[in-house]
Design a protein around this nucleic acid. Structure first.
Lengths: 228, 228, 228, 228
DNA sequence: GATGAATGAGGGTTCATTCAT
DNA sequence: TATGAATGAACCCTCATTCAT
């Protein structure tokens, strides 16, 4: 019985934390760490400032925890051993698709990360080493392709930079994208078209040809919504 | 003689304004409008908060004027009629070079703009229409290439998005770029290498071949006016 | 038991609000909206400026709420249907007495109102329509007297102006009244004498005769609510 | 020649001082001493804040000088020996007319004085003794009328209070007067009507009858405009 | 858990005044 | 004279956080 009680309490706390995280993410991803007030987060979460401080340690800690979650997302999305066994074009196409899908589903997380890096990356430097492994793994896979003559000589880190830049753009610059595509705020971005354009551009940029069906539909299935 | 006095005073004021602009740019580009305090700007400019308000109207006005200058830079950099007469690959290579050159010279201005757009672009929306013309002109040039069979069918706005995304990246994500290139903060980015990689990637992404000498040195020509 | 706690808290908050209102009234009635600082109000209330803002929304809102209360007082004091059934001299005598009584009890409220009107009445214009009804009712009662031949032809609004001017004077000009009556600041005004003089002057000014006992004691009846 | 130069300079200074006085009067009479900023005065006078401080000693000194001028006006308007030789009703009618005329011509001066008294009369207390003589003279004249049986027993100081209150009202409460008389801000008050009503009310209030022609036209002649 | 209360620091901005030129 | 520059103080208000209940 006591266990049940504890469980209920834990669940409630978890629910509250997720509400708070969503509110914080919304604010941090729009105004950055310094530009966000705890009052704004509390308001968005529908609680009082004092209640907020009951659940979080501090504004900085909340921000850091969100960043930490973000890093985990990146790790899941990045090139992995499984991709290494595919043809380069297909592997990259999949990577781009995963990344874009995530960007469309969680633009705020993408923006949060960009904000942090643009602010100097002070907070993330502490965490960055963790994902370093991911990047290192990715560069090794790409280097393997070069070694095996599957793709032209290419600097892996630049390829990763470019993939990153092109995919982040549709979250970070969403207002501008909407502006130039004459898309009102209440209509969703055209995922398939963007995905096709970006993928084609990257594959070609690598000097490869598009794999068959590479520009096919992104599964519009029930993607997970970790935080939003 | 009186004219000389006036001139000296005007120059001094202009100098102070440029010091303030530089300080403001530094802060705004790192923390955004809301995350930047006038105190921080004043400190960086080496003056008191009250003195700052002697020179500027308000924080918002200062921010807006910086953004307005930024827009003028973009207009100068964008595709123009002259480019339209070149071969597509060369025209794009030049555009990319211009943009990257500016990014390397003024990473803060690039970041300021990204921060603004990411924050929702509330302030810039008032100004954005001005550059719209520039973008429209650019899309027409690109569309002209398609019409004349010089390049494959391509959606101009996406090409512009991609150029923008790839070039901004080296300002916006500079800390991360440095991290993964193991480059300490006091060493400059390798302009030529980055320029070559980015240009090649874009030209290829368009389905073209690199023009001769396209990856050559970036002309260190008259760029001028860093902040004013 | 929980109810008791809530009640205690509510009472404490109400007490604090009344302390703040009193402090604000004192300052606003002496220096107006613009001339009063929140620091001065906080000092008088014995709290810090931040604490003050915990209890009030803003200086302007506090000022407006005080003015709004003032208007309610005026509505209670004004000529009403009950007065309309009395003889004119008696009705007016009563009105004057009520108004003077209030003036003596709450000179600051009277001054607050005068200050506001003298400042241009920007804030009160929003509220003024509410009491307009009261004035309209009063003018109709007076006009009724004229119609029924109970008093000479008279312009009701002027009579109301004059009653207002004469009664307000003993609040607004209290320092001068004291000066010319050689009355030190710690001694109360001679209510009865003033009341008698003012009433007699007004009744006569209307062309009437004083009702019997009109100059008698001012009833010390239930006036209550000084500031809240 | 040197004399001429000095004279010209003195005249210019005098002109500037009168511009400043007018601007200061406008502001002080609307917002009081504390509620008025030197910036607002300078703006109204069409000069810079530094220039203002070149001409005035301090904000307080400027305020005090305006009050001092005001007191001189009161002295000129008050009951004088000449009035003492007239019939009471006529003397009072003239006094009221003088006072109202001044009020209509210089409502700001009237308000300035009211503001000062309402603020506690700290500044004026230093000056008040000067006009005291005037009031004393007036009370003696009125007392003389009582002694000689020309008017009923009356407390002179109250009569003066009432005259003051009724006449000031049309400056101090001008916004309210306009409101209830449905008079737009750009139309002048109906001087004659107000003058007639006020005079009749006061004369009657004293227990007298109106002198012939007492309600006649106020001379709209060239009244002096000391400061406005 | 949740809320009322409190606080030291800081937010952007204006204040009256002075000084040098 | 008039203006550019400067300053210490104060303006109204919000900040992140803590504490008691």
């Amino acid at each position: 019985m006591a266990d049940q009680r504890i469980e209920v309490l834990a669940r409630r706390r978890a629910e509250m934390m997720s509400v708070i995280s969503a509110a914080a993410l919304e604010q941090f991803s729009q105004h950055g760490l310094r530009g966000t007030s705890t009052q704004a987060i509390a308001d968005r979460a529908g609680i009082s400032k004092q209640q907020l401080h009951y659940y979080i340690e501090s504004k900085d800690a909340l921000y850091e925890s969100l960043l930490r979650q973000t890093m985990q997302h990146w790790r899941q999305i990045g090139l992995n051993a499984e991709d290494g066994e595919l043809e380069p074009a297909q592997a990259i196409a999949r990577l781009v698709r995963r990344k874009l899908e995530f960007t469309f589903d969680h633009p705020q997380i993408s923006r949060l990360f960009s904000y942090e890096v643009m602010s100097g990356g002070v907070v993330i430097r502490k965490i960055l080493a963790e994902v370093n492994g991911g990047v290192t793994a990715a560069t090794q896979i790409i280097r393997g392709w070069v070694t095996h003559g599957k793709i032209e000589a290419i600097e892996p880190i630049f390829l990763l930079f470019h993939i990153w830049a092109l995919t982040q753009h549709y979250a970070d610059y969403e207002p501008q994208v909407r502006f130039f595509m004459a898309l009102p705020a209440d209509m969703p971005l055209d995922r398939e078209r963007i995905s096709a354009e970006v993928t084609r551009f990257i594959i070609r940029g690598m000097g490869l040809r598009l794999p068959e069906h590479a520009t096919g539909l992104i599964s519009a299935g029930p993607t997970s919504h970790p935080t939003s």
